[in-house]
Each structure stands twice: as C-alpha cells, then as structure tokens.
Amino acid sequence: MRLGYHTGYWSAGPPRGALEAVLEAERLGFDSVWTAEAYGSDALTPLAWWGARTSTIRLGTAIAQLSARTPTAAAMAALTLDHLSGGRFTLGLGASGPQVVEGWYGQPYTRPLARTREYVAIVREVLAREAPVTFDGAFYPLPLREGGTGLGKPLRSTVHPLRADLPIHLAAEGPKNVALAAEIADGWLPLFYSPRMDATYRELLADGFARRAPSHPGRGPRPVEEFEVSATVPVVVHDDAERAADAVRPFIALYAGGMGAKGANFHRDVLARLGYGDACDEIQSLYLAGRREEAAAAVPLELVQDIALVGPPDAIRSGLAAWRQTAVTTLLVQADPASLALLAETLDGGPAPAS
C-alpha cells in the first residue's frame, strides 16, 4: 500500500506550508499528491503551481468537479498537465452534490451517474485523438444540437496527448457510483472508507468490473489488475487518542452536517451505513443550527477511529494492519504538513529518508 498526500480544501486563502509539504512528500518517497476544489479555489491551478517544483511524485485532482468545466475542457487540462509533468498526472473527477452543482454552477444535478458516464466517455475520446469528437448524449451533445447557431463542427484536439490512456479516477460514495467507477474508470477515490466495510466495497467493485468493456491498447480504462483505490484518510499522531480525534471531528462534522442538504447528504449516508445514523442525525441537527463546535463534539471516537488513524504511534501502526488487508492501494494522508516525516516513519514502520 502506497502513501499519498492530500492537500485538502483551501479555507479563506492558500493553505500555509502547502508547497513545502508537497516537496517534503516527494522527498519522503510518497507516491502522489492530490488537490481539491469546492466553491473557492480550483484543483488544477494549485496542482500545476506546486507540481512544477517536483519531478517524480504523481499529481492528481481529488477531485475536479464535473460541473466546473465541460468534458472537453477537463480533457484539455488533463493532457496539458500530463505533458508539463512528464506523464505524472491523474484526472480525478466527481459529481459533487446538488447544493454546489445547482447553487454554484447553476446546472441541474439530475441523473449524476448517467452524466458521469457521458463525461468520462468524452474525455477518453479527446485523449484517444482518433477522430474529431462527436457525442450523441443527453447531457453533453457534441456538436451542440439545439439552442445554438447550428455552425458547430466536430473537432479534434490540436495537441497530441502524451498518454492516450491517461488515468481517470472517480470519486464515489453510493453503491451504484462505486460500481460505476470500477466499470468505466482506472481508479476509485473513496471518502470515509473503513476497513469494516471492505467486503462490501470489494463486492461493489467486482460488480463494476464484471460490466467493464474490454480494454483497448493505448487507451483506457486500463486492465482491472491496474485499478487503484486511493482513500483519503486523516492521520493524527498524539499520545492521547481523544485529543487526536479532536483534530478530525470538525472535518467529519462538516461533511456529515454541512456538506449537503437534510435528506440529501451522500457523506452522511456513508457514515450511516457504517452504523452511525443516529450520531449523524444529531451532528447534522447541531450543524444546521449553527452550533458547529457542538456538532464536532458529538462525533463519537469510534467513528473517527473507523475512518481515520489517530492516537499514539503504536496504535496507528496497529490500526494500519487492518488497512493493509483492504482493497485500498494508496492511503491519501490528510495531516498537518509539519508532521509528514513522522507520519511516514510511523506508517512505514521505519525511519524517514535523510535530507
């Protein structure tokens, strides 16, 4: 199981020490570094800016939102970053949720799975560059069929992609979406993965793999054997497990309570499937009432320990053993940048590389 570093969302401005953390992750031998976007900073610009200072670490978006750009624009960004990084880019995509898609991007959130399927298909057509891109879809018709001048024509990318099979990963939480990732993508980006749910996730992935179209040489999806599962996992090393959990509780409260409307919060549903439905109801009620500190305090220690690695180094090493038995191929660490060396030592069980 490889290690990756997740820079997370920006708050009011750029995260402090992000560049130093990215460089440290590469020095420590981390496999990849990932950026995020919500409704503030975008995921591509910081990745290009920080990634320009690196030479070996893989660069990924976790996630670039579908509604933030058209499929062809996403493909353009992907092939551009792949060229500039020497073939180190992974395009991580996700549908986000109705509050952001309809409230921020002004687009409908209807049929997100069908929309995702069309989106990925078009990105792959652009990267394949075998012919001018046309697509007879319900969401992304190319050329435009209605409402335009009628002068649109099929086009082929002027730039030749460095890799026609540039990897595409999908963020997914619901069962059908997880299976879709296994069917059409090269990897899955789960949030709130828990080793306790590993058997269920393996079944969902197997369902998707069974529907996977045969691979074509030089273009995705890649063989099932190369499929990646890169799970975002908060990691906090502290002698007191409760104190360590306190660093993660606001993150969980935000997702369970504030990242989605009541009755339409996919993050909350994942935690409910873990058995924390009642706790999530309380967290959401407090969060939506503006009582955020109380919402965070209502997150049980057991929930934190299910989806994160927190506590003394020995406890984290012990907990990591369960993660190594899962379908997860890369642990995307969310952590204090200053503690990356300690985390690498703790997670790998040996000393960090010397400067």
Rank of each mutant, 00 (worst) to 15 (best):
H83A: 04
P351L: 07
E282W: 01
G290L: 14
I122G: 07
R249N: 02
D82K: 13
G311K: 03
G17E: 00
I184Q: 05
E130R: 15
S85L: 03
D165M: 00
P190N: 06
T329P: 00
P71C: 10
E294V: 02
V133E: 06
L162S: 01
A335V: 07
A298W: 08
M197G: 10
P112K: 06
L204A: 04
G103W: 05
G147H: 01
A296P: 09
S194W: 05
E294R: 09
L79V: 00
R211D: 11
A244D: 10
V33M: 10
E242L: 06
R69D: 11
I168P: 04
L3V: 02
Y5K: 01
T90P: 03
D240Y: 11
V100W: 13
Y5P: 00
V126M: 03
F89T: 01
T330R: 13
R58I: 04
A172M: 05
S41L: 10
E225Q: 14
L151V: 08
A68E: 06
Y9M: 04
I283Q: 13
G150E: 10
K262R: 10
S41G: 15
D239Y: 00
S157C: 12
A297G: 14
G13S: 12
M76H: 11
P132D: 07
S215C: 14
D246Y: 01
T7F: 00
G29K: 10
L254E: 03
P312F: 04
G349E: 14
A231G: 14
A95K: 14
G106C: 11
A199G: 04
R53G: 00
P351W: 08
E130Y: 01
L274A: 07
A185E: 02
L166S: 03
G275P: 12
N265G: 10
I168R: 04
H238I: 08
G350F: 03
A171S: 10
A338M: 02
E242A: 11
Y255C: 06
W34A: 06
V100F: 14
Y201Q: 09
A36L: 05
N265V: 09
E102M: 10
Y105L: 11
R53M: 00
A295D: 05
V328Q: 05
Q107N: 09
L23S: 00
A36E: 07
I252Y: 03
L151S: 13
P214G: 11
L191R: 08
L151T: 14
G17P: 01
P195K: 09
H216M: 14
P141I: 09
G150S: 09
V224I: 12
G220Q: 11
R129C: 14
C280D: 01
E102A: 13
A181V: 13
V100L: 15
A64N: 11
F192G: 04
L44Q: 08
P351N: 08
G218M: 05
V22N: 01
